[in-house]
Structures are given as structure tokens and as C-alpha cells.
Design a protein around this nucleic acid. Structure first.
Lengths: 247, 247
DNA sequence: GGTCCATTTGACCGATCGGTCAAGATTCGT
DNA sequence: ACGAATCTTGACCGATCGGTCAAATGGACC
């Protein structure tokens, strides 16, 4: 009886402050079993701390979740910003963006699954939205360089498509792994995926370069037609911006 | 968390047997708040039944979840099968498949979100896998008509890409709706999405027809080259394996 | 010494959870 | 009409949940 060593404590050595250890434990646990599946007692146990300390430092379970989420989104946005910062042709920068996204998601697939999981929970997805919105605007700005505002190749369409092409490979990995008998996030299959997404990006960019007007065909009303990037830049407020566009 | 969705108790539609009413209530609740967020008491309350009846008919909460899941997957697979059944060129059938998928997911976006949510839960995703696997093989067989087995345009790559392009539009709808100020699942935006996915399908099919060899470039070994669908059918019937990898 | 303040502890609370049970009510074959 | 099988009820169980609290620690400054 007594304390069963079945629950991995993983970090009983006093690495970092108590607050950091709780945050790290919560991070791991939320990703493993989702928000509802984690109890404050579990978090404290893995952090080698007392349950009450969870509430002392983070006030509530939702506060803890929020802390974990924003830490992740910061890393997420930083990874994408770095990929977009360097110079190069539009095509090179798109490839870098998609590469960085794939690498980040493959490394943090549990986090990606967590976010997708909480999407269905109406009480927690305001938290997700708060982090998602600036990230979306950031990427949409980047896509606005190559894609029109409306029509069947609009920036928002490409965003969802490329985002889904990369993300679902990672979030569906546990399922696909069983169906295929191989891990989609391990070296051979992950590189296959990278090849595919790059191929897809090139396909779309070729089509956009070949006939930029036809891609916009489905858009009915003529729009005021200011500089597209300028209009878009004005829309995204100054606060959320991370990297000024270098072209 | 919040007790908003709990208050839906009185005036249960006397339609159907008690078992059906419980199943319908569970369906709605699981989609609203996920597996962990639903209690047997909630289900019984909404169904206008007694809590013990949930366990009488479905043995456990997981049994109830399994019943809900398989009912949904049956409808899902039926929708896709109908789209693939009719005759036509490969391109027409691919368009119909994607259309049917988009329509089904737009109508059942809550279900799509539920499935994605439970993907992160290792204790429930065997249940999801049991339903996902045959559906995957079914669609992969269809894709095998147009796509090679390996390389950057392999059937499995296209599956994840198109599936993600359609599905994420629906599962991310609550988030995108707030960012855009419009509902992605309502008429105007949903048709925009359909245009985009059709455009994307054409882009890929054109590329595959133009140079079927180059798409397969990354695949080194020459394969026996029997009828692709036949070989795939035999393979998937025989065992869980889909494609032996040579690299 | 003493005092202040952030940190830590362990016991405690009410509510809710999934699941069981024995006994009543209803339906049905005969 | 009668017993058997099926369905329904409400009370009940042990466990766990998020969250609180008063008291104990321990170091920093005077």
C-alpha cells in the first residue's frame, strides 16, 4: 500500500521553482488526457508538490490551463515568425513556413491534439480563441502576399487547406499509425509528408502565377482595390504584429 | 464547469423507445461537451428517463459512447458510399466524393469535433480507431484509382490532405466564425469552400494526369503493377497492412 | 531576539461521478 | 388468468472532483 510508484513523477529533483514544476507537470498531463481528464491531485503528484499549491499559484484549474496554453502558443508563433523573417522569394518563404509548421507540430503533436480537443468544449475554447486569433492573422498576412482576398484561392482558403494538410497529419498520427503500422511522425513518413506538402504548395503557387485572375474568378463584386497588403495590414492592428514584412 | 447545457430536461419528445431517446440525448450531449464532460445523469435527464436505465441498456458510459460513435460512422460511410457508387469519370466521382464529405461534415460538425476531441484520449481512441479504420480503407481504395501507392502524391498523402481540407473547415468553424465574423458553415462561405476544394482537386488531378511518373518520382522501387484497386483490395482484406515500405 | 511575508502543509468540504441493487410496474406468451 | 421476462424506479455506494482554510514553515530584514 502506501505510495504506489505507478504514477511517474519524472521530476522529483528540485529542477526549477515549484511553480515551474507544476506548470511542466500540467503541460504534460493536459496533453496526455485533455483538460477534463486532469485532476489537480494528478498535477501536484507529478510535480512533487501539494495539491493546494496548484490553486495557490494558478488560482483555479482553468487558470492553470490558460497558463499552459499561452506558453505553447508563444512557442508556436515564435517558430512561425522565425521562418518568415528571413529573406527569399515568396516560394522559398512559403516552403520555410510550411516546413517550420510541420516540424513544430510533429514535435508537439500532443499539444496540437489538445487544442483540437478543446475546440469542442464551448467553455474552454474562448481561451483557445484568444491565442488562435493573433496567430491566424499573422499567417493570413503572410499568405496575403501570394493569394487574393476573395475567390476560390483566397488567403483564408489556403490557410485552412495548408494548415489542415500539416496539422491533421500530426493530430491523426495515433490513428494513422495503427492503420499503417508505422509512425507518421517518425523520420521516413514525416519526410514523405514534407515532400507532399511542398509539392502541393508548388502546385498552388504555379497555378496562382499562371493565371492570378482566374483564381479570383468566383469573386463577384469589384472591390475598392487598394493595395492588398496595405489593406490587410491596416486590418490587423499594430498590437498583434510580430514581424514587419520584408520583401 | 458550467451548467448551461444541463437545463434541457422537461418535455422529452415521447418519440421512440426509451433506448432511442437515451441514444439521441447522448449523441447531442457528447457532441456538446465531449465524452468526459457528459454524466449519465445528464443523459437521463435530457432523455426523460432514469439514470439507471442508461446502464441497463448500454452497460457503461463507454458502451453508450460506442453506440453513438458507430451510429455516426455508419451514416458517414453511407454518405461517402452513395457518392462513389454512381458512374462517371474519375474526376466527376472525386468531385462528388468531396462534395458529399463536405456536406456531411457541415451538417454534423459537432460530431466531427467530437471525434477529433477524443483523438487525444488514449482510453477512447481505440473506439474511434475501430470505426475509422474501415472508413479509411474505403476511401483509400477510391483514391487508389487516381493516385500512386508511393511518392509525394501517394494515395495516403492525398487522403490526409483532402480530408483535412474539408474537415478542418468544419471543426475549426467555431473559431473561424469569431475571427471572420461570419459562419463558415452557412451558405455563402460554405460554397466558397466547396469552390476551393474542387479547384484543389482539379489542380491535383491535372498534375497527376500531366506527369504521373514525376509525381511518383520519390518512389524508387518499381512495383508489380497489377490493377491497383484489385491489389489494394486484396491487401486490405488480408491483413491490417496497407503498404509495405521500401526505402 | 522579533516580525513580516511568501511559501507549504494536511485536513476538510460539498458536490458529483460511474455504477449497483432490490423491489415495483408493465408487457407478453400461453 | 398466470407466471416469466422485460422494463422502470429510487435509494444507495465508494471514490474522486475542484476548491478552501488555518496552521506551520522558513528565510530576510531590523
Amino acid at each position: 500500500m502506501d505510495q504506489n510508484p505507478r504514477m511517474a513523477k519524472a521530476a522529483p529533483p528540485p529542477s526549477g521553482t515549484t511553480q515551474d514544476r507544476i506548470l511542466a507537470a500540467a503541460e504534460a498531463l493536459f496533453c496526455e488526457v485533455g483538460f477534463a481528464g486532469v485532476s489537480a491531485r494528478d498535477v501536484a503528484l507529478r510535480a512533487g508538490a501539494q495539491k493546494a499549491l496548484v490553486f495557490y499559484y494558478f488560482h483555479s484549474k482553468e487558470g492553470l490551463f490558460e497558463a499552459v496554453l499561452s506558453r505553447y502558443y508563444d512557442a508556436h508563433q515564435a517558430a512561425l515568425a522565425e521562418a518568415l523573417a528571413a529573406a527569399g522569394t515568396v516560394r522559398e518563404r512559403m516552403h520555410r513556413l510550411v516546413d517550420a509548421y510541420l516540424d513544430f507540430m510533429a514535435r508537439h503533436s500532443a499539444y496540437a491534439r489538445l487544442v483540437q480537443a478543446e475546440l469542442s468544449n464551448p467553455s474552454t475554447h474562448p481561451l483557445v480563441e484568444k491565442n488562435f486569433a493573433p496567430l491566424y492573422r499573422f499567417v493570413e498576412d503572410a499568405l496575403g502576399e501570394v493569394a487574393p482576398d476573395e475567390g476560390r484561392a483566397a488567403a483564408r482558403q489556403l490557410f485552412v487547406t495548408f494548415q489542415g494538410a500539416v496539422l491533421n497529419w500530426c493530430t491523426y498520427a495515433p490513428l494513422l499509425s495503427r492503420v499503417w503500422g508505422q509512425d507518421p511522425l517518425a523520420a521516413p513518413l514525416l519526410e514523405d509528408r514534407r515532400e507532399h506538402v511542398r509539392w502541393l504548395v508548388d502546385l498552388v503557387l504555379d497555378a496562382l502565377e499562371r493565371s492570378p485572375a482566374s483564381a479570383r474568378r468566383a469573386a463577384p463584386a469589384a472591390r475598392p482595390k487598394g493595395g492588398r497588403a496595405a489593406a490587410r495590414g491596416a486590418r490587423s492592428r499594430a498590437s498583434g504584429r510580430v514581424t514587419p514584412r520584408a520583401r
